[in-house]
Write a protein that binds this DNA or RNA. Structure first.
Length: 494
RNA sequence: GGCGCGGUAGCCAAGUGGUAAGGCGGCGGUCUGCAAAACCGCUAUUCACCGGUUCGAGUCCGGUCCGCGCCUCCA
């Protein structure tokens, strides 16, 4: 078995992965702020860490995976204010958060993202945050200013090591107007005193609410311990969020915080970061209207998780065709009758897969292994007997797709033999005109086309074929006049 | 300005120092009533550029150019 190596942002190197406790992995990934629907960038992050999650479990680790839900934040509060509605501001924020938390899970489910073990919410962990803040004040690394509490960056010697920044440079280049309350512009808020119309909680220093960074420290260390193995998130979180999180966590516990920091690359549009200010944000739900979620996932898998991935409809379409190639192979193999897909997976193929994935989760290289087997199948399926070992290699390919979270779907549907339909041209015309492609209509059309072909009525048979093609359904004619239709069930009307 | 990542065929993309995976697209052919799917062949003498190390470099080192990101909320 290849040894797993992961790229650690903190050391900027690939390192041999050795969990704190043999056989167990504790992993934390920054979750969403639930004030809106998820966009492709979220999908990228959570699919990337889902693959990591799945691969670690495939390697036999018992994984404890924690992902927080930020249900308290400026954006959420502002949004809740705009929407109005009944109840106090706390209740309104909670309602908004519930709605988008639910939407988040729906979207992730559609992308086959496995559930984490815990989804702690910020608002449910405020006492723990306060406990940490008090301890930090007690240790002299945090200070109070009025009702606010700030972390004193200068009191933490390792500050900047994660993001590779030098605190002096940061000071010099600080773009934010210096807040007079802070000792240094780099200091960040652990607790903010209550403002008018904001949700707040009592604290020793007065009513207020926690800063953003402290929530991750509170929830990760509560559920995973002071030191844990993997901390993940998008590259944009490295600074300042993760740098601050690390500083306050280590200052609090006096121990190392996360041992490996993993960060995924961005989704870009025309090579630029997708962001609200550029107005180029693609909402997942909109994308799902055009491309099935599994195609979106497959698209994401085509690039290494740390590289930027450029989104375009062309690229998604391409991913869809590539996935079809694998689905189609799976469908044909399955249809061949032999029970090849339940054979034990070929050991050499799996070992190549392990090598690719153990090299910092190289999914693109892993997929190349799958394509290779798919090609071998296509080269040989017409032969009376498949080459030795190919069936178990196919089984391995299917297993690999499963570990990557892509369940193969058989797109080939054998159509029943042509029925005796009187007036089949009229029936075909009616269905085409109606433009409602149900299972029954599809079968009827294929039957009509069979009749037409038997009678060498090429005009009608081609018209039916063209119509089906428009609807995304391909027909495959075989020797002996049998026909199969190629489509995914979601393409049909209900 | 500081820090970081990257530049591989028409496009996407992998690449432990040993002589360029894979996918998509395109072209020609096979199969087919014609197609579709699939197969076969072709589609990078070369890895942004310039030097260096080496028997040997896309892969290591130095420099140049270009793109992107972070330094402010952000997956």
């Amino acid at each position: 078995m290849s040894e797993l190596c992961v790229y650690n942002t903190q050391t900027r190197k690939k390192e041999l992965f050795q969990p704190l406790e043999p056989g167990r992995v504790r992993m934390y990934v920054c979750g969403v702020t639930v004030y809106d629907y998820c966009h492709l960038g979220h999908a990228r992050c959570y699919v990337a860490f889902d693959v990591i999650h799945r691969y670690l479990e495939y390697l036999g680790y018992r994984v404890t995976y924690v992902q927080n839900i930020t249900d308290l934040d400026d954006k959420l509060i502002n949004r809740a204010r705009e929407l109005g509605g009944g109840g106090d501001i706390k209740a309104r924020v909670a309602r908004l958060a519930d709605k988008f938390t639910e939407a988040y899970f729906e979207d992730m489910d559609r992308l086959s993202v496995l559930r984490a073990d815990h989804y702690p919410a910020a608002t449910a962990n405020i006492p723990r945050m306060q406990e940490i803040i008090s301890a930090l004040i007690g240790k002299g690394v945090a200070y109070q200013r009025g009702g606010d509490v700030y972390f004193e960056v200068a009191a933490f010697p390792g500050y900047g090591e994660l993001s590779g920044k030098n605190p002096d440079d940061l000071q010099a280049g600080a773009r934010v107007a210096v807040d007079g309350k802070k000792k240094s512009p780099l200091d960040f808020a652990l607790w903010k005193s209550a403002a008018e119309g904001e949700p707040s909680w009592p604290s020793p220093g007065g009513e207020g609410r926690p800063g953003w960074h402290i929530e991750c420290t509170a929830m990760s260390t509560r559920l995973l311990g002071e030191t844990f193995d993997i901390h993940g998130g998008g590259q944009d979180l490295v600074f300042p969020h993760h740098e601050n999180e690390r500083a306050q966590s280590e200052a609090f516990s006096g121990r190392p915080f996360a041992r490996y920091w993993l960060h995924n690359g961005f989704v870009t549009i025309n090579r630029e970061k997708m962001s609200k200010s550029l107005g180029n944000v693609f909402n997942l739900r909109d994308i799902f209207r055009k491309f099935p979620p599994r195609v979106v996932r497959f698209f994401l898998l085509g690039q290494h998780y740390r590289s930027p991935v450029d989104y375009s409809e062309e690229a998604l379409g391409e991913a869809g065709r590539a996935l079809f190639r694998i689905d189609n192979c799976y469908g044909m193999a399955r249809m061949s009758g032999e029970d090849i897909l339940s054979l034990p997976p070929d050991a050499e193929v799996m070992s190549n897969f392990d090598a690719a994935m153990s090299d910092d989760f190289n999914t693109a290289a892993a997929l190349a292994g799958v394509y290779k087997i798919v090609e071998e199948y296509y080269q040989n399926y017409r032969k009376p007997k498949l080459p030795a070992g190919l069936p178990s290699r196919l089984s391995a390919a299917k297993k690999i797709c499963g570990v990557l979270g892509v369940d193969l779907v058989d797109p080939i549907h054998e159509m029943p033999p042509a029925a005796r339909i009187s007036d089949y041209p009229g029936l075909a015309d009616r269905i085409i005109l109606e433009n409602k492609l149900t299972e029954g209509n599809l079968q009827a059309l294929v039957s009509c086309r069979e009749r037409a072909r038997q009678e060498e009525n090429w005009e009608l048979s081609d018209r039916i074929r063209d119509y089906l093609k428009e609807r995304g359904v391909a027909v495959m004619d075989r020797k002996g006049k049998s026909t199969a239709a190629v489509y995914y069930p979601e393409q049909l009307d209900r």
